[in-house]
Measured scan of single mutants.
Amino acid sequence: EIHIRTNGEEQARKVYKMLAKRNYDVKIEQHNGQWVVTAS
């Protein structure tokens, strides 16, 4: 499982799309105001 911390919604969405293209199961979560993308 991969966790990627991003500094904002826009970046989180870019990372989300990139990983989704590679057939990862991707989730975006917010932790303490930080956007974290989780891929498995």
Rank of each mutant, 00 (worst) to 15 (best):
Glu1Thr: 14
Glu1Asn: 10
Ile2Lys: 04
Ile2Val: 07
His3Met: 13
His3Glu: 11
His3Asp: 03
His3Gln: 12
His3Tyr: 14
Ile4Asn: 01
Ile4Ala: 02
Arg5Asp: 03
Arg5Ser: 07
Arg5Phe: 14
Thr6Gly: 03
Asn7Phe: 12
Asn7Glu: 09
Gly8Glu: 12
Gly8Pro: 02
Gly8Ala: 10
Glu9Ala: 07
Glu9Tyr: 15
Glu9Val: 09
Glu9Asp: 03
Glu9Arg: 09
Glu10Phe: 09
Glu10Pro: 06
Glu10Lys: 13
Glu10Gly: 08
Gln11Ser: 07
Gln11Val: 08
Gln11His: 11
Gln11Trp: 12
Gln11Tyr: 11
Ala12Asn: 00
Ala12Cys: 15
Ala12Arg: 01
Ala12Phe: 02
Arg13Tyr: 10
Arg13Cys: 15
Lys14His: 07
Lys14Arg: 13
Lys14Phe: 11
Tyr16Phe: 11
Tyr16Met: 13
Lys17Cys: 15
Lys17Tyr: 11
Met18Ala: 10
Met18Arg: 06
Met18Pro: 01
Met18Val: 07
Met18Lys: 06
Met18Glu: 08
Met18Asn: 05
Met18Thr: 05
Leu19Gln: 00
Leu19Arg: 00
Leu19Ser: 00
Leu19Glu: 00
Ala20Ile: 13
Ala20Leu: 15
Lys21Asp: 13
Lys21Val: 08
Lys21Cys: 15
Lys21His: 08
Lys21Gln: 12
Lys21Met: 13
Lys21Thr: 08
Arg22Glu: 06
Arg22Met: 14
Arg22His: 10
Arg22Ser: 06
Arg22Ala: 10
Arg22Gln: 09
Asn23Tyr: 15
Tyr24Ala: 05
Tyr24Gly: 03
Tyr24Phe: 11
Tyr24Ser: 04
Tyr24Arg: 06
Asp25Met: 13
Asp25Pro: 05
Asp25Lys: 14
Asp25Ala: 11
Val26Arg: 02
Val26Lys: 01
Val26Tyr: 01
Val26Glu: 00
Lys27Ala: 06
Lys27Trp: 07
Lys27Gln: 07
Lys27Thr: 08
Lys27Asn: 05
Ile28Trp: 02
Ile28Ala: 02
Ile28Asn: 01
Glu29Trp: 14
Glu29Pro: 00
Gln30Phe: 14
Gln30Gly: 05
Gln30Thr: 07
Gln30Ser: 08
His31Glu: 10
Gly33Phe: 04
Gly33Ala: 04
Gln34His: 12
Gln34Arg: 08
Gln34Ser: 08
Trp35His: 01
Trp35Gly: 00
Trp35Gln: 00
Val36Asp: 03
Val37Pro: 00
Val37Ser: 00
Thr38Ile: 15
Thr38Met: 08
Ala39Leu: 14
Ser40Asn: 08
Ser40Ala: 07
Ser40Asp: 04
Ser40Gln: 08
Ser40Leu: 09
